[in-house]
Write a protein that binds this DNA or RNA. Structure first.
Lengths: 200, 200
DNA sequence: CGTCCACAGATACCGACGGTATTTCGATAC
DNA sequence: GTATCGAAATACCGTCGGTATCTGTGGACG
């Protein structure tokens, strides 16, 4: 490996830490992932973490930036796949299942959202990112209703919120009971969008 | 105060601890409530807690028993109030708002549900209580559909799950963003139950 | 009524956590 | 070549859940 300048070296450290943190956060959740584990796994000491990030929450926000960006990309992909309502709903259902079935990820995100309640700064930071996801989802639903001539029974903003809430709620309930079926979400979406239910 | 027998004394200690724990859990959440704080607030030492409860989670389950019983009672009240659909929906909306608006309670319950993922025993215990709530809700919805002649667009079991999920999801989102409106839940319920939306 | 034991509860301690203060040591500027 | 600056290492703090140990008293028994 070529000799690195100071700035390059620090940037590399920061990248290694965020990548390692993302892996551990997504595997074990927020609480179970200590900064020492992150530092160790990345080959550094805890001092390197605090030299690059102000706190565990700050590191977490950096990780979430990547996750939320990826999420929006995925959702856009889903809603631009195929050409008919059914094709897109089908793609959405596959996506929803993989998303809600990803327990560690849900654990991480919900754990972190709960922290926001007592910390105004964290709350504001998280709200910005959350609004971006909710806004993107609403926009995509709007586009669908126009392009495919749907007639949602609720304002599309409320439909977006309902879908996000159902995703969170189902994910949390799956930690407890076996597995509330994904159709609770997908069927509800069809109803709210004014699309008929599939034969079953 | 009259002289207490040994058994009476211990029962009183246990009651004081559970009452204090419930108050603190509902005020500050699970993580922020240490057993030492509970013991102190109840006028005992941490030893008293571990003499009466095997772990923090066990104490938590005892507290949750009371909370879930109260919750079922409240829901039954709502669904037996008034005589028309609208009266009952109205009562339900008031109840849902107070429930979802109770951030500390939501925080506590979700925090605890997240813990269940890694602990099979805890998961089983929590699943039993959760199934009781879900079952009660489904039963009440069934009763409504029969008594008032509703035609739900989804199986009532799915309707119950959707309502519980929406409650959890909206509660969590409220920790982050200002306040996703409660109508996301109540309107969705009306749609799923096959009841018309109110004029707005 | 005196003796002794079982047990509720107090006390002391453990390792792990997030965070802070201090130190070290090598890249960079002069 | 030397001084400096800062990234990273190290040492430490208070708090947490949990455990091991001790203590003091209620209650059974001779």
């Amino acid at each position: 490996m070529a000799r690195l300048t100071r700035a390059e070296s620090q940037a590399r450290t920061r990248t290694l830490l965020t990548e390692t943190a993302q892996k551990l956060f997504l595997r074990d959740g927020y609480h179970a992932t200590s900064l020492e584990k992150v530092a160790d796994a990345a080959g550094f000491s805890k001092g390197a973490v605090y030299s690059n990030f102000g706190s565990k929450d700050e590191l977490c926000l950096v990780v979430l930036d990547a996750l939320y960006a990826e999420r929006i990309t995925k959702i856009v992909e889903v809603f631009t796949s195929g050409t008919t309502i059914d094709e897109r709903l089908q793609a959405f259902e596959v996506y929803a299942e993989t998303m809600i079935g990803d327990a560690p990820r849900t654990q991480f995100e919900v754990e972190f959202a709960l922290r926001a309640r007592k910390d105004p700064n964290l709350r504001a930071e998280l709200a910005r990112r959350d609004a971006a996801v909710a806004g993107a989802l609403k926009g995509l639903i709007d586009q669908q209703t126009e392009e495919l001539g749907l007639t949602p029974v609720l304002p599309t903003e409320d439909v977006a919120r309902a879908l996000l809430s159902l995703g969170i709620g189902l994910g949390v309930q799956r930690f407890v009971e076996g597995a509330p079926p994904i159709r609770v979400l997908t069927d509800t979406m069809r109803v709210l969008l004014g699309v008929g239910l599939p034969l079953r």
